[in-house]
Design a protein around this nucleic acid. Structure first.
Lengths: 227, 227
DNA sequence: TATAAATGATAGTAAAGCTATTATTTTTGG
DNA sequence: CCAAAAATAATAGCTTTACTATCATTTATA
């Protein structure tokens, strides 16, 4: 039998569960491809329907609007990443090693996970870099938050925050540092590729440079000989 | 006579210079108010025209589209902030003090500058927090960059990067750290007010908490006793 | 004071963002 | 296996957004 990883999703994000039908899985698969290709602003349900070979109204039966679909695939990614972190740091005792592995996972290019046949995690990672912050930078972030749309992101920040506290139980800003690591990993990646003079990375555009910058930043303040 | 600060703007951002006419200045003034109030997604030239008491076509004579208008007001803000930094740190010798002042300027609530009668910097600061990253998180960031749309942001990063190097000439990531400080100042502010569990700040929601977090983060790595 | 430049008033178009209706498949429970 | 229910397809239509065009009128300026 084929093993498939299932990420538990917030039921209020969709009208009909896209995991439960061929059309639904196609919506997820092609929306990831299309958002990555055209960017979220140019992405429309009409174009998505064409790509799948269905109709606009068909998509609307699954998702109320394109913003909820974006939040859905982003939540899915955070759920998947949390699973990856748990899996990859399972037998690691040293919290510093663990935090380094987390930073590496966040800042490295992701490979498509074959356990999830209808999701291309590599593209999803690119979407997070370029569109991730648009999921919460809205006027309706308050209501979205009440609906628990950002729970997977918060859970991930808590997980990382706990590892930070294992490194230094008296560190004052575990959550802020966790959200900072996540966002800076993506931002520096975007800048490296698109606005390189906002960074100090060379033209090789290797993600390892971002990892080194983050390691320097994070471990200087978490393991601070001065305080 | 009344002193007015003028920020030099990129000529390709507009079709007609909005600083040079009453209508133009009204476009700037009301777009800042309207984007702050409704968010950039809901902001339209039609609503802006109504707010001013002119017509949609009238706005289009000044700006090609709402994205360029957003880039315009954001560039304006970076230019103004660069001026503020130069002004406020003019006679400060110690680079550490200087960098602390820059962090404070970036993370504090801004007061409306009376030298610029048609721009409310306080609102503009809120726009930067909630909409700033949308100015570059687009598929056309490459072309926009060629047109020098992000020069004021880059200049500011260079200025901050130089102060960082004054603090520690062997620090490896002055530009990345500068862009990180700017973005994290805004992000943590947004999180503090909208998704507080992504931060460690208490309910007082005082910006001073963000400043402390940033000072800890920045100076641990810039003045690192370990390296 | 003529003339050019800017603005106002109005109209119109294509696409985006939805909703509704009916017909046709596909699924599934008795 | 068949009938009812559920999902999908096909089509239409409506409002708003994003933008362009035209022409009349006001305002600035040589």
């Amino acid at each position: 039998m084929k093993l498939e990883v299932q990420i538990k999703m917030n039921q209020t994000l969709f009208l009909r569960d896209p995991e439960q039908s061929e059309l639904g899985r196609n919506i997820i698969k092609h929306s990831i491809q299309l958002i990555d290709k055209t960017g979220f602003e140019s992405f429309t349900f009409k174009k998505l329907a064409e790509a799948i070979g269905t109709t606009e109204a068909g998509i609307y039966r699954y998702f109320e609007n394109k913003h909820k679909l974006l939040v859905y695939i982003i939540s899915w990614y955070w759920g998947w990443l949390e699973f990856q972190i748990g899996y990859q740091t399972k037998n690691v005792q040293d919290p510093v090693t663990k935090l380094k592995q987390v930073i590496t996972l966040l800042a490295s290019n992701v490979e498509d996970d074959l356990m999830t046949s209808h999701v291309d995690e590599s593209l999803l990672h690119q979407i997070l870099i370029a569109e991730g912050s648009k999921s919460y930078l809205t006027k309706h972030v308050g209501e979205d938050n009440k609906q628990q749309y950002f729970k997977p992101y918060k859970d991930l920040c808590n997980t990382i925050g706990e590892i930070i506290l294992e490194c230094n139980p008296s560190y004052l800003y575990p959550h802020s540092l966790a959200s900072t690591i996540i966002e800076v990993a993506h931002l520096q990646n975007f800048f490296m590729h698109n606005l390189p003079s906002l960074t100090d990375f060379d033209k090789s555009k290797k993600e390892s440079q971002i990892i080194e910058f983050l390691n320097n930043l994070v471990f200087s303040s978490v393991i601070n000989k001065r305080s």
